[in-house]
Design a protein around this nucleic acid. Structure first.
Lengths: 184, 184, 184, 184
DNA sequence: CGCTAACCGAGACGGTACGTCTTGTCTTGAG
DNA sequence: CTCAAGACAAGACGTACCGTCTCGGTTAGCG
């Protein structure tokens, strides 16, 4: 029952560095846009060496994706759990849509990177597609009885959101309302 | 009454070069992926000088987008007109979905470029979003009477297609069938 | 009257580590060349931590120089003492020249490092220049009576040897014979 | 009788860039020392792109060597021709020795680089060893009749100069005088 | 015996330079 | 004025090595 956590030899990884890198990556992406962010600028802002980035991530895309995913976990998924437990689809959609306004542009670019890198794609799915689909599936459970129909609805709602995001169309409460309305 | 077509002075633009560039851009994008294509590789393959590319297009993204759009017009929009005139939604969706398998990956990347360049975004909309939406709007005219509901449906169907494309999910006849089924 | 060797507190320096480091530095330098040797590769081969290198030497150049100097003492200076005592200039030159074939390339590199680091330069002088000059001075004592002329001869002979070494020219017995011949 | 100089197609190499690069490389090497010079700092100072350096030279060592060789041709070999034609060994040595004070430290480093790169070594020979040896050979022609003895003397004088250079010893007129004196 | 001090291996860290790659512009002669 | 060819400035990329720092663990003398 005791903890068998044995530390490997050598200097342990610096969590401070990890956090500083992800933080710098997040804010630079939000403020300057994905293309203007550089591995070097991240390293500089984080007070880290460039090699430290490449030791733990395969490249810029992975770092930014990780940074966005962490913030999404903290700020989006956590607060959204209440809406999911309450079964309030409208509230959930409002929240989910609002959350996308900041990270949307970066997600578009990561979609592009994902074409050439399957790891990026699967990470993108795991962090930014499946969580919302799972939530929608849960929230539609009572309203839609047929599983296949429900799945199609999930895809349609999730797809409509992604589409607006990628095309730069308005993502506001009105859009959330329209989506809910169309289900009646 | 004679033809008022006066030629500007100097050597006229070479249509052969234009076609060779678009052709090279198209095939390299399909075969190697957007990121592996470079302005230099396009110029080389087209037997063109790099300056000729930049004389007529603002950059790589615009060239590839133009190349994809041209092929799409030739191979997709043209054959699809029959389905639209016949009002056959199912046939239209089958065709539209099939057409995306080749150019899909490149469109993802262009989505990324579009974040930093509004011209790319509007070109992307004009060539690859609005045509399909217009077709869907027409095809849903009889089935769905409410204009707002119809618009939401268009967004949902178009969004579901984009979503599968961007996530690399299967885009096949079964998916077209599911979409049609869900409208009943 | 007892030994005043007072040990400092703490764990004493490991002679085994010191020897392993110098040995690894020597052989890697001989076999791969100075530039291909890394502080990390030395540490690895010696089964030592990198900090142990930097605790006792100021950097890579100093380690390699130390390693070469130690081997030179063991294999060159010691056996050469016989020739010096016997006053046999020809035998001494043959031995001195033969000894350079292995460590020559590394000495060239250390010459480069010495530009930026005076400590390296003075160490280089002390280990690889002055011993030979002292020996030559001794061996020329009877042949050349004028001290200034003798000094110039020492510089000329030592310089000719260094020159061939640095230029990668042949350093063989014929060269030793030519040098002796020119003194008659 | 007409000039058959046909230009290859494309933009010709910019002599301005070439000169600016060599100039920047020369002065930075003299003022900061070889190790402190960077391909990037050369490019920056020359107003050139880094790729332009690597298009025409294989690396930093080759650039610096070329820069030093060019200056040596301009400032050393040219003015020295008078002394050679006049057969004035003493004047030649004074000039040759004076010229080394500036570029000496850099040559030491290039000697080090030459270990790993035969091209650098042969370039070093061609620009900085053979010219002086040829001059010495010429100047000793009358004084020393035996060809083998003359060759040994050339090596000894050249070697003594190199030796002082590499060891950072004084290279002044007194040294030139001593060398001449020892030949009598 | 425990305590303190300096050592040891391992390996992550910040930093710097390298050489490659791509973009978009500029400069030739030819058409 | 356009075209092919290709050199140019700019600057991001990912790699390699350097010398430092941080762990857990070891080995001595001293109390």
């Amino acid at each position: 029952m005791n903890e068998p956590i044995i530390r490997p030899p050598g200097r342990p990884r610096s969590e401070a560095s990890r956090d500083a890198i992800l933080d710098a990556a997040y804010w630079q992406t939000i403020e300057r846009g994905y293309h203007a962010v550089t591995t070097e600028s991240i390293a500089k802002a984080a007070g880290a060496g460039k090699q430290t980035l490449y030791r733990w991530w395969p490249g810029k895309a992975a770092i930014v994706l990780d940074a966005l995913a962490q913030k999404a976990r903290e700020r989006i998924d956590r607060p959204m759990e209440a809406a999911i437990r309450a079964g309030d689809l409208h509230a959930y959609l409002r929240g989910a849509i609002a959350a996308l306004t900041t990270i949307g542009p970066a997600l578009r670019c990561l979609m592009g990177e994902a074409q050439a890198d399957p790891d990026i794609l699967s990470s993108l799915r795991g962090h930014f597609v499946e969580p919302r689909c799972n939530a929608l599936r849960l929230l539609l459970e009572q309203r839609v009885t047929s599983p296949t129909h429900r799945e199609t609805l999930v895809e349609a709602i999730d797809g409509a959101i992604w589409r607006r995001l990628l095309l730069g169309d308005r993502l506001d409460n009105a859009f959330a309302a329209v989506l809910v309305e169309s289900l009646k």
